[in-house]
Design a protein around this nucleic acid. Structure first.
Lengths: 347, 347
DNA sequence: TCTCGTTCGTAAATCGGTTTACTAAACGGA
DNA sequence: TCCGTTTAGTAAACCGATTTACGAACGAGA
């Protein structure tokens, strides 16, 4: 493989000339540039990216850190980021943490290393102390999808609160008054916001005249089963479940099926994420759709275009809208005798 | 950020000493090594990976090229490769081609660039001429999941032929004699092998006394719909469809649903890949399961452990077994009047 | 003819490591 | 005491670019 010097020799100029010509910091007469081009073509020259990174101090490599890549939401997010990174001519390194704290900090340090120009950081477990300070130290970190409280970094989320609200409103409007919410607890930004939005909707429609059972766990299929079981075991009143992720929806479906309960006749379900082909499920599942493509694109934009010396820019928070995709997993329940109460309240 | 020289100064030795100590090519007395360790800790030194790559001529970076990352099979494959790469302390760059030939060659060239140490190359479209020569030129390329005919590179596939055979056998044993196979045509290694295996099973059981309709397209949902429609439009006899990928299964389900046909009462289905949660589908889908985890692990192993100067090693072909996961999308059909024929044949 | 300003281009330092070849000092044995 | 062998370490070249600061040649205007 040819290097700059060989190209320069063949073209009869110095390597500095070739370098500057290639980088546009020098304009050359036709004859010279032609001979350089010819030499490059003849030797099939391509610059060594490591030498280039070394001298420029930039790598054109960004890293995306995700808890898992098989999970549909994350794989969609990775795809979106890859796409955006490609468009910006950035190399993308993917790193999976499986939520092991050691891996997260290790990857955060790779920014301080100058190993990568920046990080798109996605986590989905409650934060422990060291993370915040590592993020602060790394600079050039964009927090995507989930928050790390206290860290100084731009953030990009979907409208979790609004999504929760849409879900709550949708259930409440269809007469569900005794419902369950399964997802993460308040230790997670997303869980807190989705629950908060959900409750806002219920409060609006029913005030205190409703029952919302909340069960908290992780965004996994297993916890979907477990939390759904807890809900069912808690008593017979619940008519609908808001499951905060695709995985939780799957787990919930498992548990319902195991007990012979039908969706939506025996139990209504509304989900969140909507990456899986919920259309194809036994009962197509109504869910809040995350704007994955936009999240990915915007994360890359923020990473590359933020002025990292500007404190305001570094604490920017961006919220992207979600929408409800209606399918057929939510039934309307006959309004209970107290329905008039509700109407009075609305007035 | 500190560099080697600063560490060396603080430790009172030369930078060569520190470098060699760190790389184990020099053993030092306790006192010296302690002072180096102290300097490293004090300055929070971490080697610059680009300088290191530049001088060593290795990058410890491998690239995985996939057509798409959202598709369930590929995202599972990427996850498996990431996992294996992490275990081998290799950085992983993910590149998505969307089957654009320009991107594929570009990434292949990144091996010749010394940009990455090697490539795990996954494609899923019929090959055009330039690819083979680029692969040959790149060396250090592992072909995963799909073949590029003629290229000199180690290959790693699942047992497509065996999987096709399992599917064919399963349908045939349940009395299906008039079936359809939808997938890629013979221009793709996987499509040819799966179809071949399928036909082998049918030939074994039925000889010429069966009808297999083959429709070819890409591994996409849309083509699943289209090919299924073609099958249905071709006439009423078909009782089962072998769909060669998760996407084709989805498309098939779409088309069947659109026509009000039930699975498996009106049409049996058997799939391939089995990455999607087929358990959760309206009718849980029986499918051939690909050994994704093993494929990923082994691809990394081959990439890193192959002796690239050994022609035999470079033309190695590895086939991993598949298995059939039985669910409930295949019905048994009442043996037609000619069932005796079959028995005669078997004898 | 003598500046002055372009145009065209180069030498050399630098980025931060690795590695080869070599040496100074200490040590051990005769 | 002298020589050979370890031990402990270093100087310097090198990987392949970028970039700063500078200079030669040339044409134009006075």
């Amino acid at each position: 493989m040819a290097n700059l010097k060989q190209v320069a020799e063949r073209a009869g100029v110095s390597s500095a000339t070739v370098s500057r010509y290639l980088n546009g910091s020098l304009s050359l007469p036709e004859a010279t540039s032609a001979s350089i081009d010819a030499a490059i073509a003849a030797l099939n020259y391509r610059p060594n990216p490591f030498a280039r990174s070394l001298s420029r101090g930039r790598t054109d490599l960004i890293r995306m850190v995700v808890p898992d890549i098989k999970a549909p939401f994350f794989s969609a997010l990775v795809a979106a980021v890859e796409n955006a990174a490609y468009a910006r001519e950035q190399e993308l390194a993917i790193s999976v943490t499986l939520n092991r704290p050691g891996r997260e900090t290790r990857y955060l340090d790779s920014v301080s290393d100058r190993h990568v120009d920046g990080l798109i950081f996605v986590t989905n477990h409650p934060q422990v102390a060291p993370l915040k300070s590592r993020i602060d130290a790394a600079r050039r970190v964009v927090l995507l999808d989930e928050d790390v409280p206290g860290a100084v970094a731009p953030r990009l989320f979907c409208d979790n609160e609004g999504g929760g609200y849409l879900a709550g409103r949708y259930l409440a409007e269809r007469g569900h008054r005794c419902v369950a919410v399964i997802g993460t607890g308040d230790e997670m930004h997303s869980g807190a916001a989705r629950y908060g939005g959900f409750m806002r909707a219920f409060d609006e429609l029913y005030g205190t005249d409703a029952q919302v059972l909340r069960k908290a766990g992780a965004y996994t299929i297993e916890d979907g089963r477990r939390l759904c079981a807890e809900v069912l075991d808690a008593g017979p009143g619940v008519t609908a479940i808001f499951a905060m992720s695709d995985e939780l929806v799957m787990g919930t479906l498992d548990e319902l099926a195991a007990r012979g309960l039908r969706v939506p006749q025996d139990m209504s379900i509304i989900g969140f994420d909507d990456i899986l082909p919920l259309d194809y499920f036994a009962t197509p599942i109504t869910a809040i759709r995350q704007p994955v493509e936009e999240l990915g694109r915007m994360a890359v934009e923020i990473l590359l275009d933020t002025d990292w010396d500007d404190p305001a820019a570094r604490s920017r928070v961006e919220i992207l809208p979600v929408r409800l995709v209606e399918r057929s997993s939510v039934a309307s329940v006959a309004p209970p005798s107290k329905a008039t109460d509700q109407q009075e309240k609305v007035r």
